[in-house]
Design a binder for these strands. Structure first.
Length: 783
DNA sequence: ATAGGGTTAG
């Protein structure tokens, strides 16, 4: 052994560089006696250092190493290995640098440790440099080095580089294959890893070992291949592979991820030993598969078995709290995590943010997010999604813009949260920018993302672009069609929507429940009565579907639209489903539009029986009374609402200007141009009164009762429309988005304004889009 | 002496 050390030391020290020899061989050390003594000394140091490193005693090894004069390659390698195996990668790299500075040559033993250190400290540039060096010194065909490089590149996410090393290496062993397979799995490429495994088995006749099996199981979890996962399970049993606790847990996890909790539970019961990881996998499985109670039960059972919950247990339980919408459970777990000292922890904090948001409380989420010392893209995505889920679209958009100021770039998750926010806000400019980002970032083939973009353009009032994106999609799925049909429906293009529906059927796609929601919505909004009934029947007769509450709602809307309120009530009474507030809401609207107060009162009664806090219902009823001149009833309804401690939803109108969303409330004076807006509003109001057909102009008790700020002249919609009219190019359409439905007064006023200004004005409310032009509206005054 | 992933957030 000692000779080998001396040999490698000679290799390193002497070489053929006279200058190096000159530098290293100082006159004092060049006598033959000193050299012999130092060889003996080096050999004994090597033996001690070797056993210290193997025992994991790196610090002691380091002090011995530092006191050693002129350590040889072997000693340097030992130190680098000691640090790398102790996960002290910075130190390992530091030692490697000192080794280079000392002029000692790195060999085929050195590089695997160095590569590992760069790989695990995400030192991308250093990793590439060391690869170049390896090629330069001619070690690029070494099996161990190449295997390490494959792992390094896949840890960097550079799969094509990993593949290149793999395919160019002169010989490959099982570690080479397993490293590549793992590279695919850990980069989310489940399919490619399964293909690779098949190849190594079939084309190269290799046996799958423990590592290959665990990778294959992870791939089956990723791609939801339950059948292949089961095959691997059989393979384990058939080939008599000793299923150790890790392998069994990997199997358990595969069943959990594939949603087969029955099998997972069976496997779990059959296990002779279980550790914390096993329990965590089971708990995570129940939480993932919407069995929150089972998740909690398992956590309790786990503790009965003397297992102490760890960070991962807590992370796995949080989605169960979210699923139950139980803040109490969530808070208790949060408290436990604090008590146990699990925080701060990036993943745990992110999971907590998500839990609070899903339980409907954004405050704790925001606090957690602000205070996080380290934020990953997932943290940002979670917070953005939290805002969107809770209807706080403006904040979501602000946070999204804030994210882009930093080093992190939005990914598909970010995009699929933020696009619906743009749709809700009708932020066409923002949405368009994000669309172009999607194309640049290469997410333009993701059908989920594209579908949300088609929807976004439709909700931003641009049906043409929406259609264009749809037409250019590589593969349109059922959702794409449903979205586009709905887009045409809400803009009042019922005929076009129905044409799309038949085009969809021509492609061989089978409609689902959502398709019929889109189709029936199209019929009801456009008043296509015969077609509506035809499709309502065909959905049952031809497709064997049972209509859901939404479909019945559309039919009530349709009946209301044709003015047959008696038939609408009969239809509701004969429905096989229990009518919900949504159904009575359609009847209420029908009553309002047909000016039938009795029907409206009846519908409102039903709604308030189900939803005592439905403010929209009070408001609509009171406005009907107002229009009918029933002052006492207005007072009665409004005071009833106040008694219940309810406030009417603050009406808001949004417009986008210069890429920013501007929000207006009734009587708003907060805007830069408020003075001008109000001046124009007064002028227009006079013109509208002169036109003398405002239904509210003759007698308007609401105006009398409410403060002046609440007069229809000051409604948020009018302010928003005027702002947009005076601040945009002549001739371009005006788009306003509202959070409540348009009132009669505004509808009438905007019709006239579109005539006065010669501009197209599009107003999206919570249900439909009104296209005003030349003094008329696309909804035909029924909404 | 050298290369290796059981459970964790959207």
């Amino acid at each position: 052994m000692a000779t080998a050390f001396v040999h490698s030391s000679c290799n390193t020290v002497s070489g053929s560089n006279p200058q190096r020899r000159l530098l290293r061989d100082s006159p004092a050390a060049s006598t033959s006696t000193t050299r012999r003594w130092s060889r003996v000394n080096l050999a004994s140091v090597a033996r001690t250092l070797f056993s210290l490193i193997n025992a994991g005693r790196v610090r002691e090894a380091a002090s011995l190493f530092e006191s050693t004069e002129k350590p040889d390659t072997f000693l340097w390698n030992l130190m680098i290995r000691g640090y790398a195996n102790g996960e002290l990668y910075e130190e390992a790299v530091h030692v490697y640098r000192r080794m280079q500075d000392a002029g000692v040559w790195a060999d085929h033993f050195t590089f695997p440790f160095v590569i590992k250190s760069f790989a695990n400290s995400s030192s991308y540039d250093d990793g590439l440099r060391v690869h170049a060096k390896i090629i330069k010194v001619g070690l690029d065909s070494d099996l161990f080095i190449c295997n390490s490089l494959v792992t390094m590149y896949s840890k960097f996410g550079l799969l094509s580089a990993a593949e290149r090393v793999f395919y160019e290496m002169p010989e490959r062993d099982d570690v080479s294959w397993n490293s590549l397979v793992d590279g695919y799995v850990s980069n989310g490429e489940g399919w490619r890893s399964l293909v690779c495994i098949k190849q190594m088995q079939e084309a190269f006749g290799m046996r799958l070992d423990w590592f290959a099996i665990t990778s294959a199981l992870a791939a089956c979890s990723l791609e939801l291949c339950l059948e292949q996962g089961k095959e691997i399970h059989c393979h384990v049993i058939r080939n008599g592979l000793e299923p150790d606790i890790k392998l069994q847990t990997a199997l358990l996890d595969m069943y959990c991820k594939n949603g087969d909790m029955v099998y997972a539970q069976r496997l779990f019961s059959s296990m002779s030993r279980r550790n914390i990881v096993t329990w965590n996998a089971l708990i995570g499985g129940y939480a993932l598969n919407d069995e929150p109670l089972q998740a909690f039960a398992s956590a309790i059972k786990m503790q009965d078995n003397y297992m102490i919950p760890d960070t991962i247990t807590v992370v796995n339980l949080l989605p169960a709290c979210a699923e139950l919408r139980s803040m109490d459970h969530g808070k208790a777990i949060h408290a436990l995590a604090i008590k146990k000292g699990f925080l701060p922890h990036l993943i745990l904090e992110t999971a907590l943010m998500d839990m609070y948001a899903k339980c409907g409380d954004l405050k704790p989420s925001e606090l957690l997010f602000e205070k996080m010392t380290e934020k990953s893209l997932v943290s940002w995505n979670t917070m953005i999604a939290a805002y969107v889920q809770n209807g706080r679209n403006l904040e979501a958009l602000q946070l999204f813009l804030h994210l882009q100021e930093g080093p992190l770039g939005p990914d598909v998750f970010t995009i699929s949260s933020i696009i619906p926010a743009c749709a809700e806000l009708a932020s066409l400019q923002q949405g368009t920018q994000i669309h172009s980002y999607v194309l640049r970032a290469g997410y333009g083939r993701d059908s989920v993302v594209l579908n949300s973009i088609v929807n976004m353009y439709a909700r931003c009032g641009d049906l043409n672009i929406s259609r264009q994106v749809f037409d250019r999609m590589m593969c349109r799925d059922l959702v794409s069609w449903n979205i586009l049909i709905m887009g045409y429906a809400i803009h009042g293009h019922g005929k076009a929507a129905l044409e799309l529906f038949s085009a969809m059927k021509d492609t061989g796609l089978k409609p689902n429940q959502s398709t019929f929601t889109s189709v029936l919505t199209a019929c009801s909004i456009t008043g296509l009565s015969d077609e509506g009934w035809l499709h309502f029947d065909s959905m049952q007769q031809e497709y064997g579907m049972s209509p859901e509450i939404e479909h019945y709602g559309c039919m009530v809307d349709l009946l209301g639209r044709t003015g047959d309120l008696r038939a609408a009530i009969d239809f509701i009474n004969k429905m096989p489903l229990v009518p919900t507030a949504r159904i009575w809401g359609s009847l209420l609207t029908a009553g309002r539009n047909n000016r039938n107060i009795e029907v409206a009162e009846f519908a409102a009664e039903q709604i308030l029986r189900l939803e005592h806090d439905n403010t929209g219902c009070y408001v609509l009823l009171s406005s009907m009374y107002a229009d009918a001149g029933k002052r006492e009833d207005v007072d009665r309804v409004m005071s009833l609402m106040r008694q219940k401690g309810l406030n009417r939803t603050a009406a808001r109108s949004l417009v986008e200007f210069d890429g920013k969303t501007c929000s207006f409330v009734n009587g708003d004076r907060s805007h830069d141009q408020s003075n001008k807006i109000h001046q124009v509003s007064s002028v227009l109001s006079r013109k509208i009164e002169e036109a003398a057909c405002d239904p509210g102009a003759i007698f308007d008790p609401i105006d009398a009762v409410m403060k002046k700020a609440n007069s229809p002249n000051r409604h948020s919609l009018r302010l928003a429309v005027i702002f947009r009219l005076i601040s945009s190019t002549v001739g371009s359409p005006v788009l306003v988005k509202k959070n409540v439905r348009i009132c009669n007064h505004c509808h009438h006023a905007v019709k006239l304004i579109s005539g006065f200004s010669g501009r197209e004005i599009i107003v999206g409310d919570t249900k439909i889009y009104h296209h005003f032009s030349d003094g008329t509206c696309s909804c035909g005054d029924y909404w």
